Amino acid sequence: MYTGYLAPASNRASWTEAVQLVDNESGDNIEISGCRITLTVRNENRNPVLTASTDDGTITLPQTGTFQWDFSETQMSGLCPGAYSVGVRISQDDRVVQLLIGNINIMEGIDTQ
């Protein structure tokens, strides 16, 4: 499980991140095509402000062992500048693993053109 900080994002731009899962022993990418992946971003009151999932296509699997989320500029514009909690889980059948527990700082975008 990864814990820590994600790179800051702007509330006036899209936010796209890709995560690659690699087997520590072999160095090979881990096959995740049959897995369900979910992501939640919560504000300081613990309320979800962004969610993504492989169920609805907001998390995609662009290549073996890699998942990616993509929030639009419109979705990001609803976030006030500040610190948010982020969690990502992956599941298959009845097994659930917490992949990430972290934080992200959302910055006020400057360019308004």
Rank of each mutant, 00 (worst) to 15 (best):
G4M: 10
L6R: 06
L6A: 09
A9E: 11
A9R: 10
N11R: 05
R12K: 14
R12E: 10
A13R: 10
W15I: 03
T16A: 11
E17M: 14
A18T: 15
Q20P: 01
Q20N: 12
L21W: 13
V22D: 10
E25N: 15
G27I: 06
N29G: 04
N29W: 00
I32P: 01
S33M: 07
I37H: 00
I37V: 14
I37K: 01
I37D: 00
T40N: 06
V41I: 15
V41K: 05
V41N: 08
R42P: 00
E44D: 14
N47W: 01
P48M: 09
V49G: 00
L50W: 06
L50S: 04
L50Q: 07
A52C: 07
A52K: 03
T54W: 01
T54R: 05
I59C: 03
Q63Y: 13
F67A: 03
Q68A: 11
D70W: 04
F71S: 02
F71K: 02
E73N: 10
T74R: 13
Q75A: 11
S77F: 00
G78R: 07
G78W: 02
L79M: 05
G82L: 04
G82S: 03
A83I: 12
S85R: 10
V86R: 07
V88T: 05
V88Q: 03
R89E: 15
S91Q: 15
Q92D: 06
D93H: 09
R95G: 00
R95L: 07
Q98M: 12
Q98L: 13
Q98K: 13
I104N: 08
N105Q: 14
M107Y: 02
E108G: 07
E108R: 14
I110V: 09
D111S: 12
D111L: 11
Q113V: 08
